[in-house]
Design a protein around this nucleic acid. Structure first.
Length: 137
DNA sequence: GCCAACGTTGGC
DNA sequence: GCCAACGTTGGC
């Protein structure tokens, strides 16, 4: 099982909207970045991910699960772009802010901390456990 | 609102 | 194939 992090502006697609989709989930569309797309191509059914709100909140607010592997992005005709579907698993009891991640030396190598612009990122198992712990899971 | 970092585009 | 110009993202 692999772990990931999905970044979204709360104004564009929020955790609440994701939760409202329930078990059916929703495609993570609109990605126009090769690195992010490549990460999605690596995802398998059942992989877990963090749902991160960028801009205002800058915090991991929930946990999601991959419920469909990479397929063409229906929001474009360009065959280069693909996306996965994800569904909400549950909220973070305590949102884990970017500041908290930066403050924890164990997370110094986390992509979130080092490559702020990548919207779909891999998360190591060690990092996953630490962030869950910080979030009260 | 500004600016740094980074990715993409297009001219040569 | 290189590199300058430009656009976008996201933290502060």
């Amino acid at each position: 099982m692999q772990y990931w992090l999905f970044k979204s502006e709360a104004l564009t697609w929020s955790w609440d909207q994701q939760v409202a989709k329930g078990e059916a989930g929703e495609q993570w569309d609109g990605v126009r970045n090769y690195q992010a797309r490549n990460n999605m191509r690596l995802m398998k059914l059942g992989d877990r991910g963090f749902f991160y709100h960028s801009q205002d909140e800058k915090a991991v607010v929930g946990v999601v699960e991959v419920c469909a592997e990479a397929h063409p992005d229906s929001t474009t005709d360009d065959p280069r772009w693909e996306c996965v579907d994800i569904k909400a698993v549950g909220p973070m009891p305590k949102p884990v802010t970017l500041a908290m991640c930066k403050a924890d030396p164990r997370l110094a190598d986390m992509v979130l901390v080092n490559n702020t612009r990548l919207s779909v990122q891999p998360v190591t198992e060690a990092e996953w456990k630490i962030v869950c712990e910080l979030g009260g899971l």
